[in-house]
């Protein structure tokens, strides 16, 4: 009485399920970047006698340059090319179709970064806790705060940091998220107001000479340079990264009731971020 189908990976039902999975996975994140569907690896549809179906999907996702706080639809985001160290997510996703509506009920992801295209003279991704890179981010924030009138920002999260060897020393490239802050003396605290202004910034330059541009989620701020008077150093309220994480990874979520649908890859699961408590649809 149970019907098992293996439709083509590029079939409409596979594409529909994969896009639901992509949006669901992106909605799980509070840090890092949105991921875009790259390829549907496999699909199986189990249809029960009551007509409800379970989709077991294996998909390949690629990191985009849109931060998860950026309201830009993932379809309009740019996938990072290999040369900029692409980050790939492989996910097993279980979805249920009840009454025609597809919902994700479980997933498991592992994340890997491309290493094969690293070249001499190119930007190389640095660990998010790299001291020199974080100093560069802090210098970028000071540069930014020097040119913003009546408003100060503090660091919410560092998204990416990379460096390149040039004649004047290491050149850094950084991406970070800022939030409006209340600053007194040398201490800045993020505004708790949910309407506090947030932005996604990119900085480029030598260690103490960053050029910064910020996108305040649809408002592009002017590019500035580092010729302003320095303000007191701001304590970085950086999203904490432990161990040797090099990038933001896809969250791993596991529904024990559907464990049979998810492939057993315990060794690979060790690479994912510690499991977030599952909040599964009833």
């Amino acid at each position: 009485q149970i019907n098992v189908q293996r439709p083509m990976c590029d079939s409409p039902e596979a594409e529909e399920a994969a896009l639901v999975a992509q949006d669901y996975l992106n909605a799980q994140h509070k840090h890092g970047y949105k991921y875009a569907l790259n390829r549907i690896e496999d699909i199986k549809i189990v249809t029960m006698p009551d007509g409800n179906s379970t989709f077991v999907l294996e998909i390949d996702l690629l990191e985009t340059d849109c931060h998860v706080l950026d309201p830009t639809p993932v379809a309009n985001c740019t996938v990072r090319p290999k040369i900029l160290t692409a980050v790939e997510g492989d996910c097993d996703v279980v979805l249920k179709r009840v009454g025609g509506v597809l919902t994700v009920t479980a997933f498991k992801c592992k994340t890997e970064e491309s290493r094969e295209d690293i070249c001499v003279g190119c930007f190389n991704l640095l660990p998010l806790n790299d001291t020199a890179a974080l100093e560069f981010v802090n210098a970028s924030l000071i540069t930014l705060n020097n040119i913003t009138a009546n408003v100060s920002y503090t660091l919410l999260e560092v998204g990416r940091v990379s460096s390149q060897v040039v004649s004047g020393g290491p050149q850094y490239s950084a991406e970070f998220v800022i939030v409006e802050a209340n600053c007194t003396d040398s201490v800045c605290l993020p505004l708790s107001d949910p309407l506090a202004e947030r932005g996604f910034c990119t900085a480029l330059g030598l260690h103490s000479q960053p050029t910064v541009a910020c996108k305040m989620f649809n408002i592009l701020m002017p590019v500035v340079d580092a010729n302003n008077t320095a303000v007191p150093a701001l304590p970085p309220a950086v999203h904490v990264h432990t161990g040797s994480l090099r990038h933001h990874k896809l969250t791993s979520l596991h529904d024990p009731y559907l464990v049979g649908f998810l492939s057993a890859e315990s060794a690979e699961s060790a690479e994912v971020v510690p499991v977030v408590p599952a909040v599964v649809d009833a």
Binding site: M8, C9, D10, A36, N38, I40, E41, D60, V79, A86
Partner: peptide, 28 residues
Amino acid sequence: PATLDLTVAQTGPVLLAPVCPGRVRFFK
């Protein structure tokens, strides 16, 4: 008992699209 021959004459090359994995949207 009679048997039914279901053999169909093949007149051209068979091009079977791979079922899975699907197309690569960006790069492999």
